[in-house]
Design a protein around this nucleic acid. Sequence first.
RNA 1: GGAGAGGUCGCAUAGUGGUCUAGUGCGCCGGUUUCGAAAACCGGUGUACCGCAAGGUACCGUGGGUUCAAAUCCCACCCUCUCCGCCA
Length: 434
Amino acid sequence: MLDLNFIQQNVKIVKKAIKNKNIELDLDLLLRVAKKKKEFQQELDELRQEKNILADKLQNPTERNDYLIKKGREIKEKITLFEKDLQKIKNQFDSLMAKVPTIPSPDTPIGKDENSNQEISRWGKIPEFNFKPKDHIKLGKNLDILDLERGTKVAGYRGYYVKGKGVLLMLGLVNLALAKMIKKGYSPFIPPTLVKGRALFGSGYFKGTEYDSQIDEIYQIATADKEVDGNASREKKFLIGTAEPSLLAYYADEVLDKQNLPLRMCGFSQCYRSEIGSYGKDTKGLYRVHEFMKVEQVVISEAEIEKANKLQEEMIAISEEILQDLNLPYRKLQICSGDMSPGKYRAFDLEAWLPGLNRWGETGSASNFLDWQSRRLNVQYRNKKGEKKPVFMLNNTALATPRTFIAILENCQQKDGHILVPKTLAPFVGSKII
RNA sequence: GGAGAGGUCGCAUAGUGGUCUAGUGCGCCGGUUUCGAAAACCGGUGUACCGCAAGGUACCGUGGGUUCAAAUCCCACCCUCUCCGCCA
């Protein structure tokens, strides 16, 4: 969400961002609706004033008469009509406003899709094997630490079991990431994974104001809805796809103390993704699954772009450090305008090399949203002048278990099929070899 | 899941149809006083939108309804607390 005044004063810039981000949005329509909304609001205010004056008169018995009461009824009816129209206009306005993107940062490459993402750096050596490296599916099966067949039998498509030492490896990764985050000054959280729509809308996971789990690739929980006037009245609940929405919504509707900024948080959670839009993609193995564990980093900062950019660098550096600790070769990409979600200002991905799959695989994504999320979640702080301002919000993956799990298996495999656990990880796993 | 109580301006609380333009206390800000402070006293103190301003409108958990008029009455829902039941 952007400020309407900003949009009105920067129509060209906003239109350019809409184009560069491949967003379907008629900005002129939004501006017209905004104008109409204002007009209707003014008209309604006048009617209400009339109503109040009349009601005032009528409480005096000497002025009371049938004519005035009749007039009151007429005003009431008019107001009802106006309120209904205004509500419709407001709904339209809100849904259009929700689609307005953040203007991408000046250094963001312009491009249509992921092919325009720019590689910025690489770290580590791509391992060379004196045997044909296996993929994690085979390795996991042979070691009996991963069971995809039974996973599918029980959970359906993309289901999986992690077993035996694989469990220790996976939890070891979680604990390594948590220990790193805490060491870096981030407060750990185990946030709710079952949340109301607001949290997901606030983070930008719902594209529109109507929460549609079909469109938005988010699982909705089937609650026993009661019907009121033909509508399901009980509030819908959804499963989060990352701890980010829960962590950001933690401060929803609050005014934060400037002294406490930046707030550094990290969340460990199960994550659920319906992957409705990715049916044909990555159909095998652990690369794309419906549920997994992840440690996520979140930072809430003052509304100053330079500070936020610095914090973003800090967050990426932590993720890089984790990959370096695990001795996993990776590259860093800057995400182009078209591959960025609407709310993002500036984004980077880290991709680890996956020898078995013989390609790079995304292990994390660091994003700066500026105030796009905080406007939706209504999180503010008081700046130097004492004015309330929306904070800036940033997030980044610390460690997503399945993909890092894949990277470890495929990079650390030995000829005999065993996995040599990286030195820094071994204490968290409890053994040096799997 | 059942029964009950409750949700009002940062906090606490008053308000059961019109005089609520939501009162009071605390807190906070400013002033008087003081060498300085405390105390006391005086004044100020929510948010959003429209307007150059004067001013207007909305918001008393949320949504609907009744009424000329709703914080107040009715309905539904959400949340919190207490008790009971079930349960990791």
